[in-house]
Structures are given as C-alpha cells and as structure tokens.
C-alpha cells in the first residue's frame, strides 16, 4: 500500500468501522473468536481493495462495502456456511431450532420454516405426552366423541370430562406413540430438507458487479 493510499484510508475509517460494527451485531450468536476472525478477514479485504483501487480512497471504500453486500447479507452467508451446514445433516432439535431461528431473522422463508418446525414438534410432543399420561390417569386421558364434541388429550385437575363417549381406551398409548414419533421424525426430515435447499441458494449469490 502506498503512503497516500494508507493515509487516505485512515481518513475514511468511519464507514469501515461502522460496517464492521454492524457486521459484528449481525453475526450475533456466532462464537466470539470466530467473530473476531471474520472481522479481521473482512477488514483486511477492505484495506486490500482500497489500496489496489485507482479511485480516491473514500470512493473505493464505498465501492468495496457495496460489493461485500449489507452486513446482514454477509452475516447470513457466514451463517449459511456454518450453522446451516451442520444443521442440514443433524437431527438434534436444538441445532435445528437455532439454525431455523436465525434463518427466520433473514426472511419470510425462514419464518415459515420456523413455524413448521415449532408446530411439528408441538404436535408430536402432545401425542407423546398423551400416550405417556394414559397409564397414570386412565380415565382422564382419551378420545371423546359425542354429538357436539371431538376431543383428544388429557384432562387434568378438576375440569369436567368432556361429554361424549371415550373411544380409544388403552389403544391411545400405541397410537399416540406412533403418531407422536412419526410427526417428530417427519418434521425433522422436512425442515432439514428445507435447510439443505436454502443452503445451496446461499452458497453463492450472483456477483454484484
């Protein structure tokens, strides 16, 4: 870097520092040492570009920041390579939830995926809970069907049992287990597939120039 270029860069540090600060925020939950490293990489890249540019440093800074994309986009690229990479082969609910949660922050597609994931988990878990509760609260867990009722689940506490006939008896245990497990498995597979699909899209965005 020539002395002039160097001193010019120093004159325009605000835009760069501001960009890096926003990037740090956008990276959010990425672990601290990785964030520091990412920021050094990007800072070094900006310095390199500005030094190599024939236009005045101020303009060069703006150009390189534009080519990098917004801090949110850049952070999403990093996350796409890191978190989604692992989540797309993992079945761990926490990792899937985290990956989908951060994906949801970046757009509507992620938000829909998060809703599907949460709904699928809740649906599955409530069937499992129903099955598990049956042996302990035999007469308060079941499927009631009556003229105006269709209720499935457990009625705890003092609330009255639904009007209608309880149909399933102890069949609710195997049924609840099968339906519960199936919806957990299908939700996991489906959201993993969504994440994989999204990851290939994020892997390379079209060049800006």
């Amino acid at each position: 870097m020539s002395d002039t270029a160097m001193s010019q860069t120093v004159k325009h540090p605000d835009a760069v520092e501001h960009y890096l600060l926003r990037l740090r925020r956008a990276l959010g939950s990425v672990k601290a040492e990785s964030v520091d490293e990412i920021l050094s990489d990007i800072r070094s890249h900006i310095e390199e570009r500005v030094a190599a540019s024939p236009v005045p440093a101020g303009q060069a800074v703006m150009e390189v920041l534009e080519r990098l994309g917004t801090p949110q986009q850049l952070a999403a690229n990093y996350r796409a390579e890191g978190l989604l990479e692992r989540a797309s082969v993992s079945s761990g609910p926490l990792l899937l939830l985290r990956a989908t949660f951060y994906w949801a922050l970046t757009g509507l597609g992620g938000f829909v995926a998060l809703l599907i994931l949460l709904f699928g988990y809740l649906f599955g878990i409530s069937f499992l809970v129903t099955a598990v509760l049956k042996p302990f609260y035999g007469d308060r867990v079941g499927l009631w069907v009556g003229p105006d009722t269709l209720q499935l689940g457990a009625h705890m506490g003092s609330e009255p049992l639904p009007a209608g006939r309880e149909l399933l008896g102890y069949w609710i245990i195997p049924l609840g287990l099968v339906i519960g497990l199936l919806s957990l498995i299908l939700t996991t597979l489906f959201v993993r597939w969504l994440i994989r699909r999204q990851r290939t899209r994020w892997q390379a965005m079209p060049a800006l120039d």
């Binding site: 990785s34 890249h45 986009q73 690229n77 990093y78 890191g82 390379a204 800006l208």
Partner: peptide, 30 residues
C-alpha cells in the same frame, strides 16, 4: 464471484480441514 460469498466459503473449507490459513506480513503495510 461475489466478495461476500468467498470468505464464508473459505471459512467453511478451513473448518472442514481442506484448507489452513495463516496471517503473513508481506511488507504490504498490513
């Protein structure tokens, strides 16, 4: 290649053990 695309991929390739990275002072000023 979009610049915002390259560095995240480099990071991942390194995490996968396909690359190693090292800061070197090459006399470029940084």
């Amino acid at each position: 290649v979009a610049e915002g695309t390259l560095y995240p991929i480099l990071n991942r390739l390194r995490d996968d053990g396909l690359l190693v990275s090292e800061w070197r002072d090459t006399g470029a000023g940084h």
